[in-house]
Every structure is written in structure tokens, then in C-alpha cells.
């Protein structure tokens, strides 16, 4: 589903965010991406989202090489990728329903289908009863779940999450992770950037570790030593 081939990213000004990153994620896989702040986690996610372009190497998502994709095509790739942010990027000038409906409106889903699909997504994250509320009235955990509903409402085959539990307490974090697990069970590839080591250990999934822009573990299947820090 995701394939990185010797991907490097150097920003203008000389900062190297990623260097020779090689890994592959298959369909339905759930993996964590970890590393210190500035190790390149966000950059890696941005390369998949086409928010950045690699300086070298190839990024292949869903069998499509992204590094030479014309700018015009970018929106159509993004429609197949759901993204969850730490600060959830919800819009406070509209209801929960309208927030979740955005990806559907963008893709031109017929109006009568939007309601059904938005409510299905909200039901999935357990917020069906709050569809008419403004996201600002919700708790942090609920806001994050609205963000997740928005990310999955058009059933993307790939789900990215950048520190989705960064602002949440452990109990809520576990709920969120459980949601991600459920998505991966139905065939969605999930990549979660996080530095919540305790949570990652608990999940017992594959972990990609970045250190100063290089992938130091996880390019193959999970390594016990890395997972459990032995």
C-alpha cells in the first residue's frame, strides 16, 4: 500500500529531514511511526499526503508513484488518504455533521448519500448523538473522534494519523487506538506517528523508528528488541 524507496527529503536551507528511507506497508497493516521530535515523522507523513515532495527516491502509494505526479492530480490522491491530526483541524464555524461531510462534498457525493455516510462514520466513532453540535462544545477526545470520522467518512484505503493521542489522557488514547485497530481489521492500512512509547508497546504492532531522518528499525517486520526495548 505504501512503499518508500531510498527516500530523502532536504528542505531549503539545508536541513535534512529524511535520508534513504526504505520501507513497505501492506494492505490492512497497522504500524507505528516513532522517533523524537524532529526525527522526521511529520515529514514522512507529509510525503505520503503530497504535502511535500521527496528530494530523492520514490514514494509509491496504492501502486502509484507520487514523486512525479502533476500538481493537478494531487487532490485525487488525497481523496484516498484519510488523515487525523493531533490538533484535529476541525472547523468551528460549522456543526460536527458538516465537518465530517467535507470530504464527501469535495468528492461530489450526491447530497442524499452524504447524510447516510456521515452518520455511519459518526456512529462508528460513537458520536452520532452529537452531529448537530459545534465541535467547540465537545471534549478533546470527542473532537479527536470527529477528526477520525472525517478521515474515514469516504472509506479511504489508507489512514494516516499524526500524534492522534498527543493531547489525550491514557484511557481516551486507548479508545482511539482501538478504533484504529478496527479500521485495520476491515482492510484499511493505518500508519500512526506517535511518541507515546507505553501505548505503542501495549499495542504490539510493527514499529518504524526514525532517528535523525534515518529509519533505524521496522523496515522489515517487528523486532522484539525494539518493541520491548530489551
Amino acid at each position: 500500500m505504501i512503499q518508500f524507496e531510498k527516500v530523502s527529503k532536504r528542505y531549503e536551507g539545508g536541513h535534512t529531514a529524511l535520508q534513504g528511507v526504505d520501507f513497505e506497508l501492506s494492505r490492512g497493516e497497522l504500524a507505528f511511526l516513532t522517533g523524537h521530535s524532529g526525527a522526521g515523522k511529520s515529514t514522512l507523513l507529509k510525503l505520503i499526503m503530497l504535502m511535500e515532495r521527496p528530494s530523492a527516491g520514490h514514494v509509491i502509494v496504492g501502486g502509484q508513484r507520487l514523486d512525479q505526479l502533476p500538481r493537478r492530480q494531487i487532490p485525487f490522491i488525497r481523496r484516498h488518504i484519510g488523515v487525523v491530526f493531533q490538533n484535529h483541524q476541525l472547523l468551528f464555524d460549522r456543526s460536527v455533521f458538516d465537518n465530517v461531510a467535507m470530504p464527501l462534498e469535495v468528492t461530489g457525493v450526491p447530497h442524499r448519500d452524504i447524510g447516510r455516510r456521515v452518520r455511519a462514520a459518526l456512529d462508528k466513532v460513537g458520536l452520532l448523538s452529537k452531529e448537530r453540535m459545534n465541535p467547540i462544545q465537545l471534549s478533546g477526545g470527542e473532537q479527536q473522534r470527529v477528526g477520525i470520522a472525517r478521515a474515514v467518512v469516504n472509506k479511504p484505503p489508507l489512514l494516516l494519523a499524526d500524534e492522534p493521542t498527543g493531547n489525550l489522557d491514557p484511557g481516551l488514547s486507548a479508545d482511539i487506538m482501538h478504533l484504529f485497530e478496527q479500521f485495520s481489521q476491515v482492510g484499511v492500512t493505518v500508519l500512526i506517528a506517535s511518541h507515546d512509547i507505553a501505548l505503542i508497546r501495549h499495542m504490539e504492532r510493527r514499529v518504524l523508528t526514525l532517528r535523525q531522518g534515518r529509519l533505524t528499525s521496522g523496515d522489515s517486520m517487528p523486532d522484539e528488541e525494539v518493541l520491548y526495548g530489551r
Binding site: 442524499r112 456512529d123 466513532v125 478504533l179 478496527q182
Partner: peptide, 20 residues
């Protein structure tokens, strides 16, 4: 919690308002 109401049974939900 609310989270595990999800994925497995969205279809059991009665049709939402205005969609009958």
C-alpha cells in the same frame, strides 16, 4: 466506551432521520 460501538454493527442502526 463509546468507541467499541463502532465498526462491527453500523448496519443495525435504524435509518437516520429524513432518510426513511
Amino acid at each position: 466506551m463509546a468507541a467499541n460501538r463502532g465498526v462491527s454493527r453500523p448496519s443495525q442502526k435504524p435509518p437516520a432521520k429524513g432518510k426513511e
